[in-house]
Design a protein around this nucleic acid. Sequence first.
DNA 1: TTGAATGTCTAGCACTGCTAGAATTCGAGC
DNA 2: GCTCGAATTCTAGCAGTGCTAGACATTCAA
Lengths: 194, 194
Amino acid sequence: MSVRERKERERAGRHRLIVATARELAETQGWDAVTTRRLAERIEYSQPVLYSHFRGRKEIVGAVALEGFAELADALRAAARSGPAGRDAVTATAGAYVDFAARNPALYDAMFSLDNGLPFADDATPAPLREAFEALVEPLAGHAQPAEPGLFVETFWAALHGLVTLTRGGRLPAGRADDRLALLVDRFVPHGAR
Amino acid sequence: MSVRERKERERAGRHRLIVATARELAETQGWDAVTTRRLAERIEYSQPVLYSHFRGRKEIVGAVALEGFAELADALRAAARSGPAGRDAVTATAGAYVDFAARNPALYDAMFSLDNGLPFADDATPAPLREAFEALVEPLAGHAQPAEPGLFVETFWAALHGLVTLTRGGRLPAGRADDRLALLVDRFVPHGAR
DNA sequence: TTGAATGTCTAGCACTGCTAGAATTCGAGC
DNA sequence: GCTCGAATTCTAGCAGTGCTAGACATTCAA
């Protein structure tokens, strides 16, 4: 049944094409520009084809977001692994997080701001989500001090996310973003900690 | 020219009616349900009337957001004024912020998540925005320690915002939201501070 | 009472996500 | 190699969106 396999391969390829095209369109023109018609035109198929791969627009956003979580996990792990340990690892990881958001704004939106239908703190949470969170836990958990590591990392993550979204939405002056990040790290992992 | 005055009064009343209706519709059915048609039907006028008051949907969101900033400023001031000073004032203020967001989710979205066209860190920033931020500065600035008060308050605010949005979006388990808030306050204003 | 200005509405444009059913393509069996 | 049936893809359309041009009504001043 090689024919069946070939068809499945082609189908998988088209699946990836849709996700990649949606992502590129979102990154260059914003998620508002990612309409089913435009997307269909770009992949050179009609709209209904999209619905044979995804339940609807939201699920496409979710697929892009999933890619994002995998890449974010990589970026965080790379930052933590790149050398420094202890407090410096936290600084590097936080910096990598903010950089990731700055470099992939639309991707970040798909992951955290838009409704992507992905289950988060849930049994069904996809592996890439868990891995991205784990990549945050590793350098941070040791500094939780009296607090529970889980809560500590969640709170730190939320703070990072707040900085990212408010800065990018123009709610905070962009000029001193680095200083705010340094301040945040300093409050969660004070100088002098090992 | 009493006729002119009456007309202006009526017009102002209708303006308020639009904002109030949009807010109520958003709070009960979400911002997606706030369409120009539905809004027009509720206020018992045709859609074009909306455009004689606002440039477009975005400006209506902005008007609702502006109400929100005034109310947030009130809520924060009330919390800080309600008794405690020093560290307790920070706890009370942070709690009031989170409560405000939980009690008025759609309003909070209009203020911080949706595109409302309001200028933030800008010369033209409307007074209610400034006042809300000032209400955060007052109890917090004293604890900035070596950091600049402005940066300190901005970062704390961002952290609060991150907690609020991630919790409400289901990205963080809702159960331990209070613990995360306590942890955050503890990191920014450690126990033993005066 | 008329004229003009102000106000409001009807109707419509170009777009959205999504889908029913027609049309086509393609591989399996003869 | 040819035909038939199934899988796939497309055309066409629905009900909804934000927004607006131009027709219509109302209201006030002369």
